[in-house]
Design a protein around this nucleic acid. Structure first.
Length: 179
DNA sequence: CCCTGATTCGC
DNA sequence: GCGAATCAGG
């Protein structure tokens, strides 16, 4: 089926405006709208005169320590310190938890919070984990969507499941040679 | 390397 | 007007 691209219809432009204004990146918008590349989005954005809009991620957040010192904090790691918080918050590592049973897998670590990055096939992008989540026949079907290992279709977690070692090779490969 | 937006320029 | 290619920066 040939899916003709509607081009920039009013609706699509409207969506573009909204998403761009919402702070989404061009690539995200491109995926969201579909049928267009991020370049197309950027190009359109410029033509519409939307470019150069204020970036929501302006100034880095500032945090005040209990001793009164002001520290600059990167946005993504910005932390709102509690007035009575004595210790710096522990570093939280986000680990996508598998939502499926792993029969042959020891499952070394208990599941963490559900950091679901699940995406539909529409949002599935290259370098995104293509591990299927749920019933493929269901409309709720999603892909993992987490950051895939470069060169592989899966993220770290799923790659481990997908590429389980057939057997442990304890064979010592000594290149007993000369030299 | 991954990503971001900006610009150019042939179509 | 459109967007791929390219550029420039983080």
């Amino acid at each position: 089926m040939t899916e003709a691209v509607p081009s920039w219809t009013d609706e699509r432009v409207e969506l573009l405006r909204r998403l761009w204004d919402d702070g989404l990146s061009a690539s995200q918008i491109a995926l969201q709208i579909g049928g267009v590349s991020r370049n197309a989005v950027i190009g359109k954005v410029h033509r519409l005169g939307l470019a150069g809009r204020v970036k929501p991620i302006g100034p880095a957040a500032q945090g005040r320590r209990k001793d009164g010192a002001i520290v600059e904090i990167e946005m993504e790691t910005a932390i709102v310190e509690e007035p009575t918080l004595p210790e710096p918050p522990a570093i939280v590592a986000h680990r996508p938890a598998p939502d499926f049973p792993l029969p042959p897998t020891p499952a070394p670590e208990p599941v963490a919070l559900a950091v679901s990055e699940r995406v539909t096939i529409m949002d599935l992008r290259d370098s995104m984990c293509r591990w299927p989540m749920g019933d493929p026949t269901s409309p709720e079907f999603r892909f993992c969507g987490a950051r895939a290992i470069t060169g592989l279709p899966y993220c770290t977690q799923h790659a481990q499941v997908a590429y389980q070692p057939a057997a442990e090779r304890k064979r010592d490969r000594r290149v007993a040679g000369f030299r």
